[in-house]
Design a protein around this nucleic acid. Structure first.
Lengths: 341, 341
DNA sequence: GTAGTCTATGTATACGTAGTCATTTCAGTC
DNA sequence: GACTGAAATGACTACGTATACATAGACTAC
């Protein structure tokens, strides 16, 4: 009692019950190999002396950690929701999530070297800002790898994405059907593949209908980016009929920026987003947006991690989103443009 | 080439360079014990044959994982921001974050048994819904434990919290100084210590000024909780001068609910929150709230985890928040009550 | 020249478990 | 009652590293 007791191991339990260490180990890792009578004795003894299996030792021996890593940007409403979905769904499959977050794209490289030290069962790369060279390097790893909503990774490693192009096309068609004749597109960061695909989806659909679609860059995928760029939009002589924004968070900033500038939505201009954040459906915004099927995307990604397809080219999963219509594209009577007029 | 090469270990590097395995290990874990010439040779060889230290084996031997666990609710804007802060600050200290999220309070117990298997360097318990019995059980663990914003844990394990009571007092005084004579308090979940402390801070300060402060429970700490309870508030015959809400997320829901009901804020009623979420300062809401110093709180928590105070009673850190005044408590001319009138 | 000190390295072992192989137990059958 | 196959268990080793201990050399100080 005077001395702090040593760590309790499976050997201690074995001694307590009078069986071998192997039997104790089997009781916890493959119970079906142990007779029910010994199993009960072992479990009782473990409980009594406070034995808890050591996952570190198990991982070393079995070469499996039951842990999945995720490299995710530290900021952004969208990534936070993705993270939550991963954590929850992994827990349902008895896996844990080891989080590697980063604030600057330059940090990713050093993060990845850190990642390699843990022999994780798999790794999710979730960011639009991991460059192709780095991806190619990671692809040589023998661990399952999945790029999440990072279209640039296609062909290099397994990837799961929402259909960015088709999604934005849906929104564009929606706006065109409402009679919009002039549409401004606000992107996040023009160099990201996500941004490019979404813009292409919009531009192509609108081009076919003879509608121009100038591109304006917010400079980030943040609320502030959208709020600030509202100023530039208002300064121009004439407002477009509608503004398509590359992401919900930017769109929410834009909405507030427009409101402050005295521009009415949807009265003077329609606004749309992309992602389907919870906040977008908050009554204060009620943004029309393309809802990403995040739960499905995450489920597919985890599938790819836990039993990866063998051989051949990397999988390239694309899942369709669905449009959610909000007040920001609900036509009102005083709307300046009338398709049938 | 035909055969898949084996995993590369420190033994392989040792053979390549012509030194012992111990020297290779020292090169990576205690470089100062190795001469710079050998170190360079070892590092070069490691790079050449693709050696990466195995953190699992290191952890098993050294009894340190360099990983901190966090038990956090899966939902809620506030917890997501806390999580991000932890992940980022831990990365700065060369630690990783293993995430254990849960959706129902009942899950916590099973999560904790899972947690024990990983011999983590420390564990953050961040939720208002972990009961005292469970805490007492965890307190017997030999690993550093910190309760984050969970006042009920005081005395049982190390804890770090914002000063809930003083913070809400500040808000109450702020409202009283604006001349509010009738104030309604909307709590999240009445049984949580967080909720209780915040209400006490409000009720005491207002009581001293002869202002009643009825308590209404939203039933959750969510946006929806606030949105729905707006209905109950509006139904009552007379609106209070102000509504104090226990958390920002609930307050944002309430604001939208009031707006939908046609109640003007701050025209007809003032509204305040607690937490200081980014969304609260979005122009669409501009909520008066008590801003938690999250970065500081997280820093203190990590300090307690990484070098825990020895002996004595558990530490009980309380950090002061600061009020941020927004439009929701900015008096307008058409305000129904006038303190000097 | 010798004792002492310090640095750099090697040897050997332990961390706690899973799984391979061998051995024992046992129920079932002719 | 001997044989058979399956079920249950035990002995042993490997997973890849960190570190205590020992040792060899280089250097200082008398």
């Amino acid at each position: 009692m005077a001395e702090r007791s040593r760590r309790v191991t499976s050997v201690d339990v074995a001694a307590e019950v009078g069986v071998s260490q192997a039997t104790v180990a089997r009781t916890f890792s493959s119970p079906h190999l142990v007779s029910s009578s010994t199993r009960q004795k072992v479990e009782a003894a473990a409980e009594r002396i406070g034995y808890v299996p050591n996952a570190i030792a198990r991982s070393l021996k079995s070469q499996r950690t039951n842990i999945v890593g995720a490299v995710v940007p530290a900021y952004g409403e969208y990534w936070q929701s993705v993270l939550t979905a991963f954590s929850r769904q992994l827990a349902e499959r008895d896996r844990q999530l080891l989080l590697f977050s980063f604030t600057e794209p330059e940090q990713v490289e050093s993060v990845l070297t850190s990642v390699q030290q843990y022999r994780l069962d798999g790794l999710v790369l979730a960011s639009a800002t991991i460059g192709q060279p780095l991806l190619a390097q990671m692809a040589r790893s023998d661990r399952p790898l999945v790029a999440f909503n990072q279209p640039a990774a296609s062909g290099l490693i397994n990837s799961v994405s929402v259909n960015n192009e088709a999604g934005m096309t849906d929104i564009a068609v929606h706006l065109a059907n409402l009679g919009c004749a002039s549409i401004l597109y606000i992107g996040g960061i023009a160099t990201t593949s996500t941004d490019q695909l979404r813009y292409q989806g919009a531009a192509r659909a609108l081009g076919q209908r003879g509608i121009a679609c100038p591109y304006l860059e917010a400079g980030s995928f943040s609320y502030d980016g959208g709020y600030k760029i509202a100023g530039s939009v208002v300064e121009s002589d004439v407002l477009p009929d509608a503004i398509m924004v590359a992401s919900d968070e930017v769109a929410l900033g834009l909405l507030d920026g427009l409101k402050k500038a005295g521009v009415s939505v949807p009265g003077e201009v329609l606004v749309t987003g992309f992602d389907g954040l919870p906040q977008s459906s908050w009554a204060g915004y009620d943004l029309t947006t393309l809802v990403q099927p995040t739960e499905v995307l995450v489920e597919r990604a985890i599938d790819l991690l836990l039993d990866p397809p063998t051989g051949g080219k990397p999988a390239e999963l694309v899942v369709e989103g669905s449009i959610r219509q909000g007040l920001t594209t609900t036509r009102t009577d005083d709307h300046p443009f009338m398709p049938s007029a």
